[in-house]
Design a protein around this nucleic acid. Structure first.
Length: 343
DNA sequence: TCTGGGGTCCTAGGACCC
DNA sequence: TCTGGGGTCCTAGGACCC
């Protein structure tokens, strides 16, 4: 199940007057930002997610750009996931995507229709579904007929379904891999199925077999309902304008450390490794990390590590475009072992 | 027209240990 | 004129996803 233009449609729940307009959720105009989600009217003008907001406005000056309502998005997502979980084992992939294993049901295609209708009735939000024997194929199928589509790929027809599709549709094949494959004359899934494995080996090695299997729709991963536990928690910020003043940089670093400390603290966790990320105006990016002997989660302790990493890698005066702080090698903190208080 | 912010997983090399 | 082999921990970068 994949929600259609999720951020945009959540916005429309609260702002029905914006319906029918070219609309996008994303970074504010004037500032450095990108489109997170575009309405279908905006997509007609060529606007895509991950596009710079400034470019989107050039393409479509009448575009209405709004920022996302995170709490609302979270609560809509929860409602949808609750509905899905009534029908089978649920694996939540992101706020707007999930797998549900309905293989034990009598009439899966009819059931998916019911599920999508129910999501629409109970949340007023449109969603699309993909039904097949695997996660790999279902995910592609859910995207096949948006919005409010349902694509069913019957058992044994997976290869035929995938054959004409571009290899980038496959989860895990991004721009780099696609370009390497294109160089071998592989553009669509059927090319990948038929290419001699010997030609893939020198470039992809062990990965060649898995790559071919993907194009055939072979994927035996089960739907995994285990709750998601973060391995890392971080935050980063692109400055409105590049900064070079040490006091501004230190204040920003302090703020980032506070946010990281708060969020791992809330989860009752603590970290052994602190990583900073620096992006220069030319967009080149470095990360530097340090692992400390004990577990830390207070702002003060995280900041101490982050600050030393900063000055080992930054000469004050050098402009910085983006700065980030993240905590990893997360363990359970002492506080977590105490009973939590609720209202 | 410059390119967000939240993540995961993988690779490769070095340090260190037995 | 040689200099193992396996394992763990750590660091940095890159590909990829939503």
């Amino acid at each position: 199940m994949d929600m259609d233009a999720f951020f945009v449609n959540v916005h429309l729940l609260e702002n029905p007057d914006d319906k029918g307009k070219p609309l996008a959720v994303g970074g504010k105009p004037g500032q450095r930002g990108v489109i997170a989600s575009a309405s279908y009217e905006a997509r007609e003008k060529g606007i895509r997610s991950a596009m710079a907001s400034s470019k989107a406005l050039k393409l479509c000056p009448e575009l209405k750009l709004v920022s996302s309502n995170r709490p609302m998005i979270r609560s809509c997502s929860t409602k949808v996931m609750d509905i899905l979980s009534r029908y089978g084992i649920l694996e939540r992939m992101s706020v707007d995507e999930a797998f549900v294993d309905i293989s034990s049901q009598v009439n899966p295609p009819a059931l998916v229709k019911t599920i999508l209708k129910r999501i629409k009735n109970e949340t007023k939000l449109p969603a699309s579904g993909g039904l097949s024997t695997s996660k790999l194929v279902s995910k592609i199928a859910s995207d096949f007929d948006k919005p409010e589509g349902l694509t069913v790929v019957l058992p044994e027809t997976e290869i035929k379904f995938l054959a004409p599709l571009e290899i980038q549709k496959i989860y895990g094949i991004g721009p780099k891999t696609a370009s390497l494959l294109n160089n071998l004359g592989v553009k669509i899934c059927s090319d990948l199925v038929s290419i001699d494995i010997q030609k893939l080996q020198p470039i992809f090695g062990q990965y060649s077999i898995r790559l071919k299997n993907k194009a055939k729709g072979i994927d035996d991963r089960p739907v995994d309902p285990s709750p998601w536990v973060a391995k890392q928690q971080g935050t980063e910020r692109t400055f409105e304008k590049d900064v070079s003043d040490p006091s501004v940089v230190e204040d920003a670093l302090q703020e980032l450390c506070e946010e990281v400390s708060d969020s791992i603290g809330q989860m009752g966790r603590s970290a052994r490794t602190v990583t900073i990320k620096l992006r220069w105006p030319d967009f080149s990016t470095i990360t530097r990390q340090r692992t400390v002997p004990g577990e830390i989660n207070r702002t003060k302790d995280i900041y101490k590590v982050a600050k030393s990493l900063l000055y080992e890698n930054w000469k004050s005066g050098k402009p910085i475009r983006l700065m980030g702080v993240s905590a990893s090698r997360l363990g359970v903190s002492d506080q977590q072992k105490l009973p939590l208080e609720f209202e």
